[in-house]
Simulated scan of single mutants.
Amino acid sequence: MQNSPFNPSLIGVSVVTTFLPTHSNPEDNHYTFAYTITISNASDLPVQLLSRHWKITDANESVQEVRGEGVVGEQPVIAPGDSYRYTSGATLNTPLGYMEGSYYMVVREPMDMAPEELPTFEVPISPFTLHTPTALN
């Protein structure tokens, strides 16, 4: 893989989080959250999400790191002006925490070349909060 001159700021990442009380058990310090992420491509080129890296931190400063190919079993190609949305989840030992990370992407042009032969770039994902409805009161 080679570094790309592509401007990663042309890729937008927005997040909406939800506490899942039916999948949680506070008595056992088990708090489950869903997060829905929308990745938008404001560039003139198609891009493909190859892998992700997450740091998930709870209120006790316990950190889980997650690395893997794609997201929810996919390595989506996002056309210029288009977006891709997915929902996943995380479990914390506290009612409050945050996630941050990055996506590793490739400019997917030309489409007939293998992704590992194309320029790659990293899209940082700013920290976002995971919290129960009463954790921030």
Rank of each mutant, 00 (worst) to 15 (best):
M1H: 09
N3H: 04
S9Y: 08
L10V: 10
I11L: 08
V15I: 15
V16Y: 06
T17D: 09
T17A: 14
F19D: 07
L20V: 14
P21L: 12
T22L: 10
S24C: 05
S24P: 01
N25F: 10
Y31Q: 03
T32P: 01
F33T: 03
A34L: 08
T36V: 00
I37V: 15
I37Q: 06
I37W: 02
I39D: 02
A42S: 14
S43H: 04
V47H: 02
V47L: 04
Q48K: 15
Q48Y: 03
S51M: 06
R52A: 03
W54F: 13
K55G: 05
K55M: 10
I56T: 13
I56E: 03
T57L: 02
A59G: 01
N60W: 12
Q64G: 01
V66S: 08
V66G: 02
G68W: 06
G68D: 00
G68H: 04
E69A: 14
E69R: 12
V71Y: 01
V72Q: 06
V72L: 05
G73D: 11
P76W: 12
V77A: 15
A79W: 05
A79Y: 09
S83N: 15
R85E: 15
R85G: 04
S88T: 15
T94M: 07
T94W: 01
T94L: 08
L96F: 13
G97I: 02
Y98D: 03
M99C: 07
E100T: 08
G101Q: 04
G101S: 11
S102W: 04
M105W: 04
E109A: 10
D112I: 11
D112W: 14
M113I: 04
P115M: 06
E116D: 11
L118A: 08
P119S: 01
P119E: 01
T120F: 03
F121Q: 01
E122L: 07
V123C: 02
P124R: 08
P124I: 09
I125D: 00
S126P: 03
P127D: 03
F128V: 12
T129M: 13
T129Q: 09
P133E: 09
A135W: 09
A135P: 06
